[in-house]
Design a protein around this nucleic acid. Structure first.
Length: 242
DNA sequence: GTGAATGTTAACAG
DNA sequence: CCTGTTAACATTCA
């Protein structure tokens, strides 16, 4: 469920609860939850794949990992790792990691790298990319400190869309090309969110989980690459290796 | 029944 | 001590 756009989608669904008072909370999370009861949910925001629920006494940082899900006024058979009640309404978080943050969010998070943020700055990321010149772009794209919110789907799709080979060294990619890649992450992420809203996300990836390159009809390469050990789908012939 | 999947981090080995 | 590898977590779907 979780890449940047999915988190925005979830946060939009939770926004109506901001300003509302928590009447009950709990779950099997090891995080203490007593401090939340009776508090007003001040704000719902995100940083990449982090869902942030702000309260006066701290923020609950929720991460969905691979299998997490959020249901409003619906329950699964399994226990929720975390839940919040707002009077008659309840929000259930399944298989999530919940942590209490007490520092001001500004001190922890830099939204200039968050692909879903208005504060996103390509200039800043180009600068950061300079510290990763020996790395392969396939790895850097999954580095949450540089491309906050990018996951395996966005990585594979955007590399294909901009015709960049995942094994390209970051330092070898011309800045113009890198800028094109950065821009397309934003474009694709928006499309991702749009499809999520329409309930059709996942219907038509170009390369992710595919077999044939839609551009030249060649067979796609499917390979576990880099330090992240995630599966990359790419076309060896039409994605340029820098 | 098996394996893989939009992910991260703690523990371990060298 | 630093770096890289493995394990662990938990669910759903093909």
């Amino acid at each position: 469920m979780p890449e940047g756009p999915s988190l925005i989608y979830i946060s939009l669904k939770l926004k109506p609860f901001s300003g509302k008072k928590v009447t009950g909370c709990g779950g099997y999370t090891p995080m203490a939850t007593g401090w939340i009861k009776g508090e007003k949910l001040l704000e719902v925001c995100t940083w990449g794949k982090h869902l942030l629920l702000r309260f006066k006494k701290g923020t609950v940082r929720i991460h969905l990992m691979l299998f997490g899900s959020v249901l409003i006024n619906e329950k699964k058979k399994v226990n929720a790792s975390f839940f919040l009640q707002f009077g008659k309404d309840e929000v259930n978080f399944y298989v999530v990691k919940a942590i209490q943050l007490t520092q001001p969010l500004k001190d922890i998070y830099d939204w200039r790298t968050d692909i879903m943020s208005r504060k996103w700055s390509s200039k800043h990321i180009i600068r950061l990319a300079g510290e990763h010149i020996t790395e392969i772009i396939g790895d850097t794209l999954l580095d949450q400190q540089v491309f906050t919110g990018v996951g395996n789907i966005i990585r594979n799709e955007v590399l294909f869309r901009t015709a960049v080979h995942p094994l390209s060294r970051v330092g070898n990619i011309p800045v113009v090309k890198l800028l094109e890649l950065l821009k397309d992450i934003r474009v694709y992420a928006k499309l991702f969110l749009k499809e999520k809203k329409a309930g059709i996300f996942g219907d038509h990836f170009e390369v992710h989980e595919q077999k044939i390159c839609p551009r030249d009809g060649n067979e796609l390469t499917i390979k576990i690459i880099g330090k992240t050990k995630r599966k990359a789908y790419f076309c060896n012939s039409c994605q340029e290796k820098f």
